[in-house]
Design a protein around this nucleic acid. Structure first.
Lengths: 339, 339
DNA sequence: CACTTCCCCTGAAGCGGTTGACTTTGAAGC
DNA sequence: GCTTCAAAGTCAACCGCTTCAGGGGAAGTG
């Protein structure tokens, strides 16, 4: 089956290709009557503009890219990315932009993919996640002048727009809440230490705990996997002076931590309170349901997509701090049992 | 910064554009010496062929598509899709095919996306998941002659290749295992009833239970969400003659079921054994870890990608049944406690 | 030596849109 | 009645690559 082209439409409408192009793109240069006739014919024969031809003649590729640099076993279970992608799609689908996905092994590979996509003119812009200190991807994006939005800062991203959520505020709320419940020994199981938002959280956690007089507040680095989160929890709980509350940098580790506590015969929340960062359905799924720092990840993604589309359109875009995640108390937090 | 084109390479190499094209694509028509010179120059100036131009001149788009038709809150937590995507990428990245993703609301929308993608020549083929009975997407794919691979059958897909795993064998193994442990009242919480593989599983479950003399084997339909899985579990467990073992169609519902059992004061596996279908890290994360029907989803995805690429290349492809998922016993299954 | 054959390469058409230069038409303005 | 001008269209170039027809020269053949 032959795909219809604007030439087919032009023939049937008795006009030139140019007129069809103007009509379908809402450009001036054709009368309203002609435009309607052309649009009707296009509809009738099910015309869709060939994206390659469009992209070739200078217009945009109408596609944006996302590279994911996490091992498959983390990706599959980490709800964050799919939430983000759903959010992207809300905005992209509305303007019929496509989302191109690539899973890569290292940040170096990511820069290679950016270069290739740019060279191939395959995407008009990219989403960048998991920002690191002195991230090697930033200079590449700068060099290529590839529109981009960084999700998760704030950091030094030069020309590249960024979007982040107020992690410091969120962790402060969590610590204050746990303190109000009576906790004094609060620990945190952090995400990948290289990531900038992990550092932000660690710094904020240390600061707020110091300012509140919690001297023993400790962050154990981890990697977002359940296994590591579980191990880190076990290490924390075998201490004589074990924490009475643990904040986890993602929900997967929090669930793993809950499981470890139960396995060690500790009751949650009696012996240990647990707070998860990011409130996926996972948190309400386990028993007891986990108190979590809730933020609307899909909305976050949608916002990022709007920013990226604006950047692509050449509109001025500014760095944005999204709202603070708020605490959703559930069954996993309670006052610590008297010793 | 200007992107290099084959014309730039041709100029520097002192040959024609055509020669460059032949050289870079491994076509005959240039001498080995010239080819190497051209390839070296291309490397040096960081050349990547413009995908639009390539696609336009008849070659393929070097992209495949995947539509996901599940609500965001399921997608984000369901590990299956990300596992599948990781598997796709293994194959696609190796041949520098891009993966284009679109989240849609209904199967009708999926057919619209197929039509658009096809019309735009944006993809060379698509992955189709969640096959239904008399799936409306199949005739559209047929009509468009759009290469496709259906993941999850077997069903009536006409010209379209399909790939499925032996669900009947897997569920038989699970039921046999539970019987061997001494269970006689086995229930199942199923996935979306519309999906073909859910029906296959339901039929197989009913048959094997009947043939083994388990008269009360019942399947409760659900929708893969934790909430529904939990509700279904609760409904099963409030019966006087409650089941002593439940098989869940995905891991998310299994985890929710575990949580409900604990909330109701039942011990797992003492009072209730639980088997999850698909063994994501989630299953090892909870306490007790869940016995699961394990299959390598990434490998499944990789296989599907190979099939699709073959179909795109015009090679003959046949329907394939992947291996049977095997049972991975963990702490959530044990002989039922004596009544 | 003339002829064919083969290899290596050139030149140009064409994929399907977009876009700027240009033409035609009709109506307003003087 | 003549110029002027905007609106409505036409025309052709162009984006960067692929591919086909064909040309030139070297090698092989009788």
């Amino acid at each position: 089956m032959k795909r219809p082209t604007i030439a087919d439409i032009a023939r049937r409408a008795g006009v030139s290709k140019g007129a069809v192009s103007y009509a379908l793109n809402g450009q001036p240069g054709v009368s309203e009557a002609t435009r309607q006739r052309i649009v009707a014919i296009a509809q009738e024969i099910g015309f869709n503009p060939n994206s390659a031809a469009r992209a070739l003649s200078g217009a945009s590729a109408r596609a944006v890219g996302l590279t994911l640099c996490r091992p498959a076993r983390i990706l599959s279970i980490e709800p964050f990315f799919m939430g983000l992608i759903s959010g992207f799609e809300q905005e992209l689908a509305a303007r019929s932009y496509a989302l191109t996905l690539q899973v890569v092994a290292t940040p170096e590979n990511e820069t290679q993919v950016y270069r290739r996509w740019w060279g191939e003119r395959r995407v008009d812009g990219v989403f960048v996640t998991d920002l690191r200190e002195n991230d090697i991807r930033i200079p590449v994006l700068d060099e290529l002048q590839l529109p981009a939005v960084v999700i998760g800062g704030p950091g030094d991203t030069g020309r590249v727009t960024q979007l982040w959520s107020d992690d410091a505020g969120a962790i402060t709320e969590a610590v204050r809440y746990l303190m109000a419940l009576g906790h004094r020994r609060i620990a945190r199981v952090g995400g990948l230490p290289d990531l900038l938002h992990t550092r932000t959280r660690t710094r904020a956690f240390t600061e707020i705990c110091a300012s509140l007089g919690l001297s023993e507040a400790v962050t154990v680095p981890s990697d977002y996997t359940g296994e590591e989160g579980g191990r880190a929890t076990r290490r924390l709980l075998i201490n004589a002076e074990r924490p009475t509350a643990i904040i986890y940098d993602n929900d997967v580790m929090a669930v793993a931590g809950l499981s470890v506590a139960q396995e060690m015969g500790l009751s949650v929340p009696g012996d240990l309170s647990i707070v998860a960062w990011d409130d996926s359905p996972l948190c309400s799924l386990v028993h007891p349901p986990l108190t979590a720092l809730t933020r609307d990840i899909a909305a976050y993604g949608a916002h990022a997509a709007r920013q990226l589309l604006a950047a692509i359109a050449g509109e001025p875009v500014q760095d944005v701090e999204e709202g603070t995640a708020h605490l959703t108390p559930r069954g996993s937090t309670a006052p610590p049992r008297e010793p």
